[in-house]
Simulated assay, not measured.
Amino acid sequence: MSVVEMVLVLFAGVGAGVINTIVGSGTLITFPTLVAFGVPPVTATMSNAVGLIPGNISGSFGYRRELAGQGRRVALFLPASLAGALGGAWLLLHLPEDAFVSIVPWLLVLALVLVVAQPMLQRYVRSRGPRPPGEREIGLGRAALLLPLIALCGVYGGYFAAAQGILLVGILGLLLPDTLQRHNALKNILVMAVNSVAATTYVIVASTGGRHPIDWTAVGLIAAGSLVGGWIGARVGRRLPPAVLRACIVVLGLVAIWTLVRL
Rank of each mutant, 00 (worst) to 15 (best):
G13Y: 01
G13K: 02
I19G: 01
N20G: 03
T21W: 00
T21S: 02
I22K: 00
S25L: 04
S25N: 05
T27G: 13
L28I: 11
I29K: 00
T30E: 05
F31G: 00
T33S: 05
T33Q: 01
T33H: 01
L34N: 01
L34T: 00
L34P: 00
V35A: 07
A36Y: 12
A36P: 00
A36E: 02
F37G: 03
G38N: 06
V39N: 04
V39Q: 06
P41D: 05
P41K: 07
T43C: 03
T43A: 13
A44R: 05
A44K: 04
A44M: 07
T45E: 03
S47L: 03
N48E: 01
G51M: 08
G51S: 08
L52F: 06
I53G: 00
S58C: 07
G59I: 10
G59C: 08
F61T: 04
G62A: 09
R64P: 04
R65N: 12
E66A: 15
E66V: 06
E66Y: 10
E66F: 09
L67G: 05
L67W: 11
L67T: 09
Q70E: 12
G71L: 10
R72T: 14
R72G: 10
V74L: 15
V74D: 07
A75R: 15
A75C: 11
L76R: 14
L76W: 15
L76H: 10
L78V: 14
L78P: 04
L78F: 15
A83I: 15
G84P: 11
G84L: 13
G84I: 14
L86N: 09
L86T: 14
G87I: 10
G87W: 13
G88A: 14
W90I: 14
L91I: 15
L91N: 09
L93I: 13
H94V: 12
H94D: 15
L95Y: 12
L95T: 15
P96Q: 12
P96V: 11
A99D: 13
A99E: 10
F100H: 10
I103D: 03
P105W: 10
P105M: 09
W106V: 08
W106N: 05
W106K: 05
L108E: 06
V109R: 06
V109D: 07
L110T: 08
A111H: 06
L112T: 02
L114C: 07
L114Y: 06
V116S: 06
V116I: 15
V116W: 12
A117C: 10
A117T: 05
Q118Y: 13
